[in-house]
């Protein structure tokens, strides 16, 4: 193949048509409260890790719901499991439990 000094940029949009939604569906079936997130950001605001790194648990769980898993498992290593996120969540989502579940179930990638 020819190399002209550039490559064809990969489209970065979320493509629900081609994403593998099976894990997202399984997660939402087992953890339905996750759908009630209203993205208030309280979890990230109070997050110990989020204040020191780019760790953003609100965004990560949304990515997983959209079938975007790449890099999420690695990012979750940053969580210190303090549990303050769960404490502040106005929708009562067990975010700490979610992190542990995702760490167990998502492929290390």
């Amino acid at each position: 193949m020819v190399n002209w000094g550039y490559t064809i940029t990969r489209v970065r949009r979320v493509d629900i048509d081609s994403n593998d939604m099976s894990y997202s569906r399984k997660l939402l079936a087992e953890f339905p409260e996750l759908q009630s997130c209203i993205a208030c950001g309280s979890c990230t605001a109070t997050c110990t890790a989020g204040n020191l790194t780019k760790f953003n648990v609100r965004k990560l769980q949304t990515l997983v719901r959209r079938g975007e898993y790449e890099g999420v498992r690695k990012e979750l290593e940053k969580c210190m499991l303090c549990g303050k996120c769960r404490l502040v969540c106005p929708r009562g989502i067990n975010i700490r439990g979610l992190v542990q579940k995702l760490k167990k179930e998502l492929p290390v990638k």
Partner: peptide, 15 residues
């Protein structure tokens, strides 16, 4: 359809 999922900051496409 095309939209942005503004909560993750990425464009999104689906049929």
């Amino acid at each position: 359809i095309k939209a942005e999922d503004t909560l993750i900051g990425l464009p999104l496409k689906m049929t």
